[in-house]
Design a binder for these strands. Structure first.
Lengths: 200, 200
DNA sequence: ATCACAGTAGCACAGTCGTGCTAACATGGA
DNA sequence: TCCATGTTAGCACGACTGTGCTACTGTGAT
């Protein structure tokens, strides 16, 4: 038997190279050659693991969502419902460079769907995941009396989800120091959750 | 004097060809050649008006915003504050094919900024415009007693703006019949404006 | 020591890209 | 009628693209 390579690990290394290229030069700069150079591999090696560009791109984008999902579930043990809510929702906002990169990649995915229809399903699955997270957070808050009992849970889920993604988009495109942007973003989210509380 | 061409008109025709290419095949498919073909012009004619691809792309994207702005200001005469608010905000949501196309182009602009830094300023100007529209709408509602007088106008502006763009993003990516999506989107917005009203 | 074969390296092909450039064309003022 | 010139048309260049393909390398089980 010849030398064996951990395929999954290699695929993730290459996907991360794809990410770096997109963040630095945009999706348009992603090519088998640029990615191979970024990963310090020969083109042949990349194509050995990803036979076509389509698979390269789809795997890289799906991995973005997988990583985010991992981070979110890591918070599910928190007890205080408000703490849990903010921890989970903050994972889905571009508050540091890692999460910011994820959001930039998310936009790139959406923008690329006309050219790569295979990305649509990947994007939709992530969309449903975030929606479910919003629903879960609100349900938890409602059950613990932190949300007005007359609230329409489904409607509030739509509103929170839209607010969350809108804040994410704005944090991505707005100018200013990262800390100031993060502070403003979390402030809006905090105020929104406050506005859902039952009267004291 | 030889044949004269209305340059401004020609530029808009070409920009609309750029839009069609982006919507059908993605930003990556925009090239001097594909755009010339889409506009039924020779490459030379396109390059006569837009000497480089950079200018072609930047003008096309700026025109997206100009068109949207035109539509928004057309509503400024409305009397009822709530009617005015919804009319303006609806112009900024992808509720029909025209506005949907605009939102797709908006995402393409954001995704292209790493590759074309000149688009950043264009995007930021549009961002400030929408923010100002949200502020104006809320100020108007507040002055007419349709918003709780204790409300923090600046904070509510940030929240409404994020909600609006989040709803726009979701209307863009969500599956389902366009009418159903539009109904759900406007419903969330209506509920949000209701939640800002002073107690009866 | 041998050798099957996973992994690496890279050439070749046909196609597209942006841009510099020249040449033809057509038209309105003289 | 004639010509200056705005407009159109398109060739040429070097660079880049995705993919098919072959040749080489190194390793670990036999």
């Amino acid at each position: 038997m010849p030398k064996l390579i951990d395929h999954e690990h290699r695929r993730e290394e290459i996907a991360e190279a794809v990410w770096r290229v997109i963040l630095r030069e945009g999706v348009g700069a992603v090519s088998v050659r640029t990615v191979a150079a970024e990963a310090n591999l020969a083109v042949g090696s990349v194509r050995h693991v990803f036979p076509s560009k389509k698979e390269l791109l789809e795997f890289s984008m799906a991995l973005v969502h997988a990583r985010a999902r991992e981070r979110v579930v890591r918070h599910t043990g928190l007890h205080d419902p408000r703490e849990l809510a903010e921890a989970i929702l903050h994972e889905l906002l571009p508050l540091d460079s890692t999460r910011r990169a994820e959001m930039e990649l998310e936009v790139a995915i959406i923008a690329e769907t006309p050219a790569h229809p295979g990305l649509r399903a990947i994007q939709e699955e992530a969309h449903r995941g975030v929606r479910a997270a919003c629903h879960g957070v609100l349900r938890h808050l409602l059950d613990r009396g932190r949300v007005h009992p007359d609230a329409d849970l489904d409607a509030e889920t739509l509103r929170l989800h839209a607010l969350l993604d809108g804040l994410a988009l704005h944090a991505l495109t707005s100018e200013g120091a990262p800390e100031a942007v993060a502070e403003r973003t979390t402030g809006v989210l905090r105020a929104h959750l406050d506005s859902l509380r039952p009267p004291a």
